[in-house]
Structure formats: structure tokens, C-alpha cells
Design a protein around this nucleic acid. Structure first.
Lengths: 247, 247
DNA sequence: TCGAGGCTTTGACCCAGATCAATTAGGACG
DNA sequence: CGTCCTAATTGATCTGGGTCAAAGCCTCGA
């Protein structure tokens, strides 16, 4: 290990995802109870956090870094089915083996809760159950949005869609709305982008080059992206210009 | 209207989806409370139940028949993002406009709950919230399964996947496990199947013909399907032979 | 019995994206 | 400062599924 993973927050009070994760609605007492069943784990970029089928002894939240949820066929074809960003929840209460592979894409820190105590707590703590329902409904919406991308968009539109999703998310984190000029780093390799979009990595590369040539994006290095005009990007994504934001 | 929609059940006690819908875990008191805010509506095949963006004054369950959830781009490309079968839930508590089009594929009966009272009830009735969480998690799993189909499977595998999902569901309703010979009716037109699978209707038609020619399925008319060997079908779908069943 | 209109099937041809194959660009490390 | 190694780009070619077009098949209504 050449780099040190970011330090885990010492207590929930200082946690960067305090107000977005499963625990967002918990009061001080509930938080104190959560503290007794939680622990932090770090994974390096590239490490597999969970294999599909593995027994899970915890559920938890991504605190920092990026992880992916992927599904694989016997012949090796793989499809990403979720992109896990800080505050996203991993694991399904009530199920004891992982349904998908979870892989750290960057160095990540996870806040883990021992599974059984967490399940018990969920039964008695509506704040947790309710927040989890909200988050799951949001993920379901995201998954459905993604089904349109996978099923009906062209390669160029797919890339533009992915870029605009990442750009929008980054902007949301910074509490701004994504308009005009937006700058961000891609949290994924070309191959991971291909797995997300149901494309090959060559096609991803070609389409990114094409978008660059057409001035829709500006690249510095392979990961650092500038979007001069967010509206233009969304147009390329084939979304109506309200950004498809729900709620 | 030439056919009469199936009669709605008179009371929850006789409801065919009593033990599978959002209300599955409710006790007699809770059911009584639900009865005060519920009403039935029927729609004919082809009718649109909700337009994306419409204000929703209810949430509810499909009691009988089949409906679809679809998303459409400005140029008309459409992708189905959900197939609603009896006991499935429609609507998102906390959101007041529909995110997707809901269209009746056959004549359907819906059990509707007035939205605001239902939301209030959810806040006080863990049985409902918990069941809804379970159902949403199941739908999320189904959506992710579907992302693999859309992103990585060939046209032939897509058709086989859809057929095996329908066959499996039909078998589950009849409380059996889908093995060996299975017989069912397709609840979808070729076009709807295409929208589900991210294909054109011509490709759907061609692949169905091919599967028929190869003896994977037997057709009587356009809708009635016999699968002589379920394992063979699952092989064609590219699933490992455990059927990908989770939990 | 006949026709109209909606599905569905089938054929011919084409193209977006896959596949195969080099080549290049960046680090990390001796 | 070269040299490995991995990620990314780019080119050449192939093909699965789309597109366009024409029948075929049912059902319903007159």
C-alpha cells in the first residue's frame, strides 16, 4: 500500500455523510446506539469488498471514495448495476448473502454495522427504516433511468448521460446546481464506464474523443473533465433540458 | 367496452392479493383503517392509467391484469422500466407527480388508496412501511437483473430471459417451482416485449420464430406458449441454472 | 361472407458498435 | 533515465440487430 486511505471519522458527529446516509434522520440517542454496532473498514482501489454469493456479516455506508456493484455472466460479460458514492448504502437487511460483486474503484472507507444488531435496530427505529425506504426508492428511480440509457440510447448519448450524471452529482455535493461550466474528475476507468453503459471500452474511448473534438467536453489528462456548457451536454444525452430531475 | 373487467373484491378478506401486496402484513385493525381510504378502479386494455408528470391523487396495488411502466424520449423512443403484475405497487409515497407512464396492457383492476391519508398511515403503521421497503428492495433487484439483460445479452438471450421470467412468475403464482414443462400466455404484444428488451418488434418476432424452430418453445397462436424444458430455456437465457433466484 | 384495421411474420439491405490488432501515453521503480 | 506495466487511443474489418418494405393472419363489425 503506497497511499494511506483517508482517515475514518472518529464519531458520527464529525462524519461527512452524517446528513445523507441511512443514519440521516437519527437523533442523538439513536446515533449513540448505532455507534455501539459500527466499525470502519478501508479498502484499496481495485480490492473486492464482497463477492456475489458471499456471506455478509455487515451492512453499511460508503463514507468516502467510489465503489461499484457488478453482475457477471459465466462467460465473463459484466454489467455494472450500481455506482456507490459517499453516503450510499451497501447490503440488504434480511438477506444474508451478497447479490452482487462490490468492488472499490478508488480507495474507500466504509462505515459498517454488524448485520444482526442493525436489523434488530431497524425494527425498532422508524427513523432508520424510513430513511432506508427513501434511499431505496431513489435508487430504484436511478436504476429505471439507467434502463432507458441501456435500452434505447446510442453510444454517444450513453457517454453524455454518464458524464452529466457525474457532473450533476458533483455539483449537488457542492450544494450548487449544475449549470454552465462544470469541472470534475472521472471516478471510473474506461473499462468501468463500458461496464456501466453496456459498451466496449474501445467504443467508450472513441465517443469520448468525439465529444472532445466537438467541443462538448475538454479533457486534461484522461480523467479531468471540463464541461463548458452543461445544457449542451444534456442535449447530447438526449434528456429534455430539465435534467430529468424527479421530485 | 365489450368485455367486463373482473369484479373488484368486496372486502380485503377476500382479496386475491391479500397476502402479497403492501397490506400483506397488516392486522385486522390496520386493514379496517385501510378500507376507509381505499377504492377500486378498473381500466381497459390499452388505457393509460397515469401520464408521467401528472399529479397523482392515489397510490395503490394492481389487483388483477397487467400494466406497464414506461419512459419515453422526445423523439419517441420508449423503454419499459417495470412490468406491473397483480400485487405490485404503483406510486411513490412522498412524491406528488408520476415519474413514468402507467399503461394497462390487459383489462386491470386497481386497489387505490387516497395518497395523503395513506402517507399519514404509513408514518404510524410500521407493518405497511416495512412491507413497502421489502417490495421496493425486490423491485430494485429485479431492475438490476434487468440491467444485465439490457446491457449485455444478445437478442436471443433477451427473449429467452423474458420468457423465463414470465414462466417463473406464473409458476410461483401457482405455488409450484418452474421445472420441466411450463405453459403460459404472454401478457404482452411483440411491441411491448421490444420496449421491455430494448429491441425492435421485428427482432423480437424473428427471435421468437428462431426459438420455436429450435424447439425451445412451442407456440399455439401468437400468445400461448409451451416450454417443454425449462432448463433448456434458462440455458438459452444465459443464466446459470439456479435461475438466478435471490434470497 | 366480406372487408378493414391491427398485429405479426418474413425478406433485403445497411450501419452502429463489436472485434481484432497495433500503437501511444503515463506513471512507478530500479 | 531507461524500462515495465497498465490504461487509453486509434485503425481496419466484421456482424447483430436496425430499418424499410411487403405480405400474412385474426378478429370484429357490417
Amino acid at each position: 500500500m503506497t497511499k494511506h486511505a483517508k482517515l475514518a471519522p472518529s464519531a458520527c458527529g464529525e462524519c461527512p455523510i452524517r446528513h445523507r446516509a441511512v443514519c440521516a434522520k437519527c437523533n442523538a440517542d439513536e446515533l449513540a446506539e448505532l455507534e455501539t454496532i459500527k466499525y470502519y473498514r478501508s479498502y484499496e482501489a481495485g480490492q473486492t469488498v464482497l463477492w456475489a454469493g458471499d456471506h455478509m456479516e455487515f451492512v453499511g455506508s460508503v463514507v468516502s471514495g467510489v465503489a461499484t456493484l457488478t453482475q457477471t455472466m459465466e462467460d465473463g460479460r459484466t454489467q455494472m448495476v450500481g455506482l456507490l458514492l459517499p453516503s450510499d448504502f451497501v447490503g440488504r437487511p434480511g438477506r444474508d448473502s451478497a447479490a452482487y460483486n462490490v468492488v472499490a474503484t478508488s480507495d474507500i472507507v466504509m462505515c459498517c454495522f454488524r448485520k444482526t444488531p442493525f436489523e434488530n435496530m431497524m425494527a425498532n427505529t422508524p427513523h432508520i427504516a424510513h430513511r432506508l425506504l427513501q434511499m431505496t426508492l431513489d435508487e430504484l428511480d436511478a436504476a429505471r433511468e439507467w434502463m432507458l440509457v441501456l435500452g434505447r440510447k446510442t453510444a454517444r448519448e450513453k457517454i453524455a448521460s454518464l458524464l452529466s450524471i457525474i457532473a450533476r452529482r458533483d455539483a449537488t455535493l457542492g450544494m450548487g446546481v449544475a449549470t454552465g461550466r462544470v469541472v470534475f474528475d472521472l471516478p471510473l476507468t474506461r473499462e468501468a464506464m463500458a461496464d456501466y453503459l453496456g459498451l466496449t471500452l474501445e467504443t467508450v474511448s472513441r465517443q469520448i474523443s468525439a465529444l472532445r473534438k466537438d467541443g462538448v467536453i475538454v479533457l486534461e489528462g484522461k480523467r479531468h473533465v471540463t464541461v463548458p456548457d452543461m445544457d449542451r451536454l444534456m442535449e447530447e444525452a438526449g434528456d429534455d433540458n430539465d435534467g430529468g430531475m424527479l421530485v
